[in-house]
Simulated scan of single mutants.
Amino acid sequence: MRGLSLLPSHLLRIALCAALVPVASCGWTGTDEGNGGSPPGAPTGVSAAAGTATSVHVMWNTTARAKVYEVYRGTTKVMEVPGSRHMVDVTRLRPSTLYVFTVRARDAEGRLGPRSRAVRAKTPAAVAADHSAPTRPSAPRGRAAGSRAVQLSWSASTDDRGVASYDIHQGETKIHSVGGSQTAAVVTGLRPGTAYSFTVRARDAAGNVSPAAPAVRLTTPGTDDGRATAPTGFRATSHRADGAYYVDLSWVPPRVDGEVTEYQIQLDGRPATSLVYGGDAPRDLATYSFYVGRDAGIGHRVRVRAMLPDGTWGGFSAERTVTTGPGR
């Protein structure tokens, strides 16, 4: 018998943790048969900005395997949104009040991941009898920031009581919000080689909304063939320990907006295991080592791909061939 079939899943995990190259302090969680996979990770990139005197806009990066997101105000769950969304307006708040928000992801099996880091936002004071909307934002501009993000900017609106926030729309859909003191935003989670149209509206503390600024039309560069999202510098070697052979991998994580916390290792054309980082994921160099059997002279083909922050798989790295060394 050869390869991964030599050990059952629970012994394979022990063998992996005994490998010479430590990976995430053996704190990874895989998708072995019998444990049903791991729950989603904590959402990253969480932000909160007051939209009006009684609402706060909460945003986060898409999390792999999330079926539902739960949004908490303090310890109270206030909203649930489907996994296809990564923003929400929390309403019915009090003016002039500081709030703390966290987000958790829940998968299709109902397993809850850990809470995100806490973010704070303070609602502005209420304004009585305000029916005057802010002026339209002017001079909107934009540029692509890589193949999956754009940078937008505009000139500030004016309002008799002050601008509380700016809403960014993609077509007819609100996709982002920033505080009234900001006149720029980065929109992430886009696709390479795709045309987009963005507009900006100003909002005051009473919820009055300005007309939309002229649309900014941009096309992200590149093609969605996976090359822009594939790990680079991929290397594969083999070592022997305790009478068994291991494949040692290293690669440079793809440069994408957001944090890459999950990878799939493919061995001989088939998925071998998933690597999920429970803490801080590597940004400059990732390493991994796994058991492949006890026989020398066995060749293996191996490659790796990343789960992107938008919840989709990126492109595969270059494929490498590695052969277990001579017996000793």
Score class of each variant (00 low, 15 high):
Ser157Met: 04
Ser157Lys: 03
Thr158Arg: 13
Asp160Phe: 01
Arg161Glu: 14
Gly162Gln: 04
Val163Arg: 00
Tyr166Cys: 05
Gln170Ala: 12
Gln170Val: 01
Gly171His: 06
Gly171Leu: 10
Gly171Arg: 08
Thr173His: 12
Thr173Tyr: 06
Lys174Gln: 14
Ile175Val: 15
Ile175Trp: 12
His176Glu: 14
Gly179Thr: 13
Gly180Arg: 05
Ser181Leu: 12
Ser181Trp: 11
Gln182Met: 06
Val186His: 00
Val186Gln: 13
Val186Phe: 01
Val187Pro: 06
Leu190Ala: 05
Arg191Ile: 05
Arg191Asn: 11
Pro192Asp: 02
Gly193Thr: 02
Thr194Ser: 05
Thr194Ile: 04
Tyr196Ala: 00
Tyr196Gly: 03
Arg203Thr: 15
Asp204Trp: 01
Asp204Val: 11
Ala205Leu: 07
Ala205Thr: 09
Ala206His: 05
Ser210Tyr: 06
Ala215His: 02
Ala215Met: 03
Ala215Thr: 04
Val216Met: 09
Arg217Pro: 00
Leu218Thr: 11
Leu218Lys: 10
Gly222Gln: 07
Thr223Ser: 06
Asp224Glu: 03
Asp224Lys: 01
Asp225Ile: 00
Asp225Thr: 05
Arg227Lys: 14
Ala228Ser: 14
Thr229Ser: 15
Thr229Met: 03
Pro231Leu: 12
Gly233His: 14
Phe234Cys: 07
Arg235Met: 08
Ala236Cys: 02
Thr237Ile: 10
Ser238His: 09
Ala241Val: 09
Ala244Gln: 13
Leu249Thr: 00
Pro254Phe: 10
Arg255Tyr: 00
Asp257Tyr: 13
Gly258Cys: 08
Gly258Arg: 03
Glu259Gln: 14
